[in-house]
């Protein structure tokens, strides 16, 4: 009899955890649906969104530009040392541009964005919850989803593709700097081989779509983790950590799926 009881306890534990997760997923969907689909208030919403664009977009520019430049330069250097063995060092432009536009720009930008902007979003909203600012807003009849969450979501969606494109173009010029100026690849072939292989719709636009999807994933996770955080200092630190971990894992998993859909013949 005791055995059966403990077996049932085991089932109950599994059920509880799955129901919790499922309820969390449901709440997350409600958050994004309400925040984006409730009637927008253009006059206040646009100015709030601009403020958030400044926080998540403009303030992330420096780290994006610097990492893009260095990643482009390293790609140029590494690509050159390998390709020069085959006497086709002109193809370094193709290698740099394709790997940046298709893969590295969206993914690395998203990972940096999750660390730079996603964690800040979670901490901010978590602290608002802990100090009962969200509850006070509700009390004076302002919907926190509309006032706090929606502008942050929109700002994240808009910023990510822009940051990713800036990353890509800075990286390409970093690669060009190393290969053409320092290693002496002929600039005519560098650019023309690149232009021969990179297609605007297939490569650049697909890269932008990837960045946009990653932007949705990161801001969604960050905002939800902030709203769900346990309102203590420890709880906020846990939520912030979870934001970075979950959104990084989601970026990498989504990247595989999107790459398979866009570039693979699966």
């Amino acid at each position: 009899m005791k055995n059966i009881e403990s077996l049932l306890d085991g089932f109950a534990a599994i059920g509880r955890v799955s129901l919790d997760k499922l309820a969390g997923l449901g709440r997350a969907t409600m958050v994004i649906a309400y925040a984006l689909l409730v009637l927008p208030q253009p006059s206040t919403n646009i100015s709030l969104t601009i403020k958030q664009l400044f926080n998540v977009g403009v303030k992330s520019l420096l780290i994006i530009v610097v990492s893009g430049l260095f990643i482009g330069m390293v790609l140029g250097l590494q690509g050159y040392t390998i390709l020069v063995d085959f006497g086709s060092e002109e193809a370094v432009g193709q290698m740099v541009a394709l790997s940046l536009v298709r893969e590295l720009a969206p993914v690395v930008t998203a990972l940096l964005f999750a660390g730079r902007a996603g964690s800040a979003l979670t901490a901010e909203i978590g602290l608002m919850k802990a100090t009962e600012q969200l509850a006070s807003l509700e009390m004076i009849g302002v919907d926190p989803l509309r006032r706090i969450v929606a502008p942050r979501l929109w700002a994240g969606f808009i910023s990510m593709p822009i940051l990713s494109m800036i990353f890509a173009i800075v990286g390409v010029y970093g690669g060009a700097l190393v290969s053409i100026e320092w290693l002496g690849v002929y600039s005519g072939s560098f650019w023309s081989v690149m232009q021969q292989s990179v297609d605007f719709y297939d490569d650049v636009l697909n890269g932008m779509i990837k960045a946009f999807v990653f932007g949705i994933a990161i801001t969604w996770v960050a905002v939800y983790q902030g709203l769900e955080s346990i309102p203590t200092s420890e709880g906020i630190s846990q939520s912030t950590t979870r934001t970075v971990v979950y959104s990084s894992l989601m970026i990498l998993a989504l990247d595989f799926v999107l790459t398979a859909l866009m570039f693979g013949d699966i």
Partner: peptide, 30 residues
Amino acid sequence: RTRNVEILVGIFLVAGMLAVLALAVNVSGY
């Protein structure tokens, strides 16, 4: 201060569009 924020955001958005344009013309030869 709001105006400065707006100006910087405007520059950010324009920089994004210029990046797409540069990718289109210089990198993909469109």
